[in-house]
Simulated assay, not measured.
Amino acid sequence: MSNEAIEALVPQLDAVERSPHAAALRARSYELLRAAPGALVVDVGSGAGRAVAELADQGARAMGIDLDEQMIALARQRWPYVEFRVGDANALPFEDGEVTGYRADKVIHTLGDPGRALAEARRVLAPGGRIVLCGQDWDTLVIDSNDPELTRTIVRKRADQVASPRAARQHRNLLLDAGFGDVTVEVHTEVFTDGSFLPVLTRLAEVCSERSAITRAQADEWIADQWERARADRLFAAVPIFIAAATTP
């Protein structure tokens, strides 16, 4: 990722991560990890590193892994007391059974072969280790609009741009296929009724227009509808987040 792309992305990530709902979801994922003090917990796809720092603050030996060197550099700058490494979810820099906790938030859907990454997670986790996966199903965005058919097209076509858009609904089966046990799944839905979600809605339509899935005029009309809804206090969008957890036998 270029420096320019990171500079544009990080403020958006920060805004999302600071929201009460996102903070509550992270806290729930830490509860499900059940990390003992000093236990090695890896956060795969750690981004700017907030979750890694929070886990470290709770007493875990937390380590962030991200494929992007620029993001790792930013995380090290922000949280200098925490360890971060450049690494691939499909080839983690750990020995067999070295890790006691594995967390991946909004990562699995970006992978072309989620099963391969979970097999790697299974390799590095010790017996009794915990894995927690968090993510959205890109086909299940709920958005009210004046044009339901166009909205369905936008949601579907935007999902088509994601490597594994339905990975979140597959979390349970992916974990079972990788040999994990004690699998649980929770759904936490965030509801947006104000302008805070407008940048996301705008980008949804713009990506579809850029990929010629809809026309520019359709995108502009749809975006204008969402902005007017926000102005009139009539915006409604809901994003279900799926959290799956499991134990290594």
Score class of each variant (00 low, 15 high):
residue 216 R to I: 07
residue 216 R to D: 11
residue 156 R to I: 10
residue 90 N to E: 10
residue 220 D to W: 06
residue 174 L to E: 00
residue 158 R to I: 04
residue 150 L to V: 03
residue 47 G to L: 11
residue 174 L to D: 00
residue 237 A to Y: 04
residue 111 L to T: 01
residue 71 M to R: 04
residue 186 E to K: 15
residue 85 R to Y: 10
residue 114 P to W: 01
residue 155 V to C: 11
residue 219 A to N: 06
residue 47 G to E: 09
residue 196 S to N: 08
residue 216 R to H: 10
residue 124 V to E: 00
residue 226 Q to G: 01
residue 199 P to F: 03
residue 205 A to R: 06
residue 13 L to D: 10
residue 248 T to G: 10
residue 97 G to F: 15
residue 94 F to E: 00
residue 94 F to P: 00
residue 27 A to S: 14
residue 6 I to E: 07
residue 97 G to K: 14
residue 191 V to E: 07
residue 48 A to D: 04
residue 7 E to D: 15
residue 234 R to K: 10
residue 48 A to N: 04
residue 83 E to F: 09
residue 66 D to K: 04
residue 174 L to F: 05
residue 242 F to E: 07
residue 115 G to N: 02
residue 13 L to E: 11
residue 61 R to M: 12
residue 223 I to A: 04
residue 111 L to A: 05
residue 141 L to R: 05
residue 224 A to Q: 12
residue 18 R to Q: 13
residue 101 G to P: 08
residue 228 E to H: 10
residue 235 L to E: 04
residue 53 A to Y: 15
residue 249 P to H: 14
residue 99 V to H: 07
residue 67 L to N: 02
residue 84 F to N: 00
residue 185 V to H: 08
residue 181 G to M: 14
residue 94 F to H: 06
residue 24 A to L: 14
residue 191 V to T: 13
residue 64 G to Q: 04
residue 199 P to K: 02
residue 83 E to I: 06
residue 146 N to M: 11
residue 242 F to V: 15
residue 119 A to T: 03
residue 41 V to H: 02
residue 69 E to K: 02
residue 71 M to Q: 06
residue 239 V to I: 14
residue 166 R to S: 13
residue 246 A to K: 03
residue 6 I to F: 13
residue 101 G to N: 05
residue 239 V to G: 11
residue 186 E to L: 15
residue 1 M to L: 14
residue 51 A to S: 13
residue 187 V to Y: 08
residue 234 R to F: 00
residue 150 L to T: 03
residue 242 F to S: 09
residue 34 R to G: 12
residue 150 L to H: 03
residue 161 Q to M: 13
residue 45 G to E: 07
residue 52 V to C: 06
residue 73 A to F: 12
residue 224 A to K: 11
residue 178 A to K: 03
residue 12 Q to A: 15
residue 224 A to V: 09
residue 31 E to N: 13
residue 73 A to I: 12
